[in-house]
Every structure is written in C-alpha cells, then in structure tokens.
Simulated scan of single mutants.
Amino acid sequence: MTRLSAWVTARVGSVSDEARLPNSLAEMAGSNSSVVTVGDLAAALNVSTRTVHRLAAQYIGLTPHALIRRRRLQEAAEHIRSEPEASLSSVAAAHGFSDQAHFARKFQRFLGQTPREYRGAPGHHS
C-alpha cells in the first residue's frame, strides 16, 4: 500500500464491498456486450435487480437501462464507422433496437445527429 493509500484509509476507512459495486456495475454495463438487460447486469454482479437500480441511483446518477443503452449506441456508432455500407435497419437490429425509427431517435438524442448524418460525417468513412 502506498503512503497516500494508507493515509486515506486511516482517515476514511476501507472501501466496503458494496461501495465497490457501482464501479463494477458501470464497467460491466459500459463494456460487456452480453449485458443486454438490467437482469443480465444483476446476474453478472450476483445481486438483485433492485440492488442494481439502487446502486445506480445512489452512486452513478443514471439508470442501469441508460448505461446499457449508452453502450449499445456507442457500439452502433462503431458499427456504422466500420461498416458504412450496412443498412441502418440492420445496425439497429444488431444492437437490440426494435426498429430503425426508435434507433434513430435514441441515436440522435445521445450523439446529436441521426445515424444517417453520422455515417456521412467527415472521418466516418472506411
């Protein structure tokens, strides 16, 4: 343990396992493509869905669903960059969106432009 870590631990105490969970929750929701639902997230963390919701509200400030949706939209943006010829409906379906219109609304809200505009933006061609 470094001097700083020892000093902080002496003053505020050790971090509890529950306090570490929000970091794991954010990491899992933000990087694990197999996590598609809040139930998946709860199972991966070995806690209840209620605990996932409580931890997200208390420590993160976004709902678990919003965290998962953000990752799916980031993956969809990467898909558009890496396969600009792919149809937007196939990109939407590949990333769990019920239809292209729903996907386009969420994409625009999150990234500030429609998927079509994003695909045509400079630097987003292969």
Rank of each mutant, 00 (worst) to 15 (best):
E75F: 01
A92P: 10
F103E: 01
P22R: 06
M28E: 13
T9W: 13
T2C: 11
D99Y: 06
P84A: 08
R72T: 01
S5V: 06
Q108F: 04
S126Y: 06
F107T: 03
Y59H: 15
A86F: 06
E18T: 14
R116W: 06
S90C: 06
I68Q: 00
Y59V: 01
V15H: 08
P122E: 11
R3W: 12
P115Y: 05
S98M: 05
G96R: 12
R72H: 01
R20E: 12
S48G: 14
E27A: 11
F107G: 04
F107I: 01
H95C: 09
Y118A: 03
V91T: 06
L21I: 13
T9L: 14
I60G: 06
S33I: 04
R11D: 08
S5W: 05
F103S: 05
E18I: 11
N32K: 10
F97C: 04
W7P: 00
A42L: 02
G123W: 08
E83Y: 13
G39W: 14
A29W: 00
Q58T: 15
P22W: 04
F110P: 00
H102I: 00
R54E: 12
K106W: 00
V47R: 12
Q74G: 05
S82C: 02
Q58F: 12
E78N: 09
L67T: 04
G120S: 14
